[in-house]
């Protein structure tokens, strides 16, 4: 475990909701990439908020190595973006295809241990899925998480947050961490 995880107080097998504000979104995601995209571990990043090409540009700009990244893009096909067939990205047709997202996360976690999974974000997924479906998804994810010993962060954007929704989900998570004040060493200044 590294410092970042110590700060967030979670260990492999845990699933945590991290509440951030929209202003710090990019800085937080960059920090996640920096901390987890190197070494023997794998970072599995499920994007519903921004496309893969957006993140590639961002990572190149900040010179972050993304070779250990398993990227599941649920938004590019929906947005009609050009799909790079040669890239290693896994494109899911629609952010409401939670079964497909789940299958692909499991596929990414198969080959290595001590992986780190980021779902970006609950706020965006809630636009395309019912609360019940998302709760089911998180419940099943938490079960698998324990088995695969992955550490999972579910991002939630403060401004788009439905508190009752987070309350419902929190029962299936190990903790909810509110980082929305923007303080602490969780962010890379963009």
């Amino acid at each position: 475990m590294n410092k970042f995880n110590d700060i967030l107080k979670f260990k492999y097998g845990d699933i945590v909701i991290a509440i951030i504000n929209s202003k710090n979104y990019v800085g937080f995601v960059l920090k996640l990439f920096k901390e987890h995209s190197s070494g023997s571990r794998k970072l599995v990043f499920v994007s519903a908020t921004k496309s893969h090409s957006y993140f590639v540009d961002l990572l190149k700009k900040y010179k972050v190595d993304y070779n250990n990244l398993c990227f599941i893009d649920t938004i590019s096909k929906l947005g009609g973006d050009t799909i790079n067939a040669k890239s290693k990205v896994i494109y899911v047709n629609h952010p409401s295809d939670l079964t497909e997202i789940s299958i692909n996360i499991a596929g990414c976690l198969k080959s290595t241990k001590n992986n780190f999974v980021v779902i970006d974000s609950l706020s965006t997924l809630s636009l395309y899925n019912s609360t019940n479906d998302l709760v089911k998804f998180v419940h099943l994810l938490s079960q698998k998480n324990k088995k695969s010993k992955a550490a999972t962060i579910l991002l939630a954007i403060k401004e788009e947050l439905d508190e009752s929704f987070i309350k419902k989900l929190s029962g299936y998570c190990d903790s909810v961490v509110d980082l929305s004040d923007g303080k602490g060493n969780y962010f890379v200044e963009p």
């Binding site: 079964t99 789940s102 299958i103 499991a106 479906d133 089911k136 998804f137 099943l140």
Partner: peptide
């Protein structure tokens, strides 16, 4: 059980659930 038609044919995912 969810299944997919992949490059090499049908694959079942018994550990997965249909959401």
């Amino acid at each position: 059980i969810p299944f997919r038609i992949k490059d090499k044919g049908i694959v079942l995912y018994p550990e997965e659930n249909v959401i």
